[in-house]
Amino acid sequence: MGGDLPEYFFRVRENGAMVFRVDTQNQQRRIDMDQIAVANVKNGEIKANGDRKLTEDDIEEISAWMEERRAVLMDRDIDDILRTVDHLNLTAQWAQSKAEPEQLEEITDTLLLAMHDLRSVLVRKKADRLLKDK
């Protein structure tokens, strides 16, 4: 089992991860995890834990994980947006074919305001991109 484990373990948190060094080379033949750093994906900061000094290998591994994590999070964002498009389509179908008047009354204003806000942002951003391309 010891040879199969990675050298580092990243405990994901909201803005990055706590970074642990995995050690299986001890007398009890058990897995020890020693926290060595905290990584912040949003600002790219890597903070060593306590008085610890990170090696170049540590920093390279953590930086590589952060880059990979950013890519995963960006992919998830796009997937979430595409799911939102699906939900909007399903909502339109529900409103047209299944919704009771009381249900429509309950959600219409909130949904219209959210859609108006989204449309305003998208139109503004599209105009900005078009003006930039000229």
Rank of each mutant, 00 (worst) to 15 (best):
G44A: 04
M1P: 00
D58I: 11
E45V: 13
V72Y: 08
L104T: 10
E105S: 09
I46H: 01
E105D: 14
Q35C: 12
G2T: 00
A71I: 09
E14L: 09
E7R: 11
Q93P: 00
N43S: 04
E7S: 03
Y8P: 01
L82Q: 09
M66E: 02
A92T: 00
K126I: 12
L88E: 00
L54G: 10
M115D: 00
Q96I: 08
A127N: 12
R69I: 09
V12I: 11
L5F: 06
L122C: 13
M74T: 03
D128E: 15
I107V: 08
E106T: 03
K125V: 04
V121S: 10
V19G: 01
Q28I: 11
N89E: 06
E14I: 04
I62D: 09
E60L: 13
D34K: 14
L118F: 08
G2M: 01
Q96L: 04
D109K: 11
D128V: 15
L118E: 07
T24S: 13
A95L: 15
E67R: 11
D32P: 01
A37D: 06
E60Y: 13
L112G: 02
E60C: 10
S120W: 03
A114H: 13
D79L: 03
A71C: 08
D79G: 03
R129A: 15
L118A: 14
D77Q: 05
L5Y: 08
E67P: 03
D77V: 00
N15F: 05
D34V: 12
E106F: 05
L118M: 13
V41E: 13
R13P: 05
M1D: 02
D57H: 12
K126P: 07
V38I: 11
R70N: 09
L5A: 01
E105V: 01
Q103L: 04
E45Q: 15
D128K: 12
V38T: 12
I62A: 11
W65H: 10
G50M: 10
V41P: 00
K134A: 15
I81A: 04
I107Y: 02
M33F: 07
E67Y: 08
R124F: 10
D109E: 11
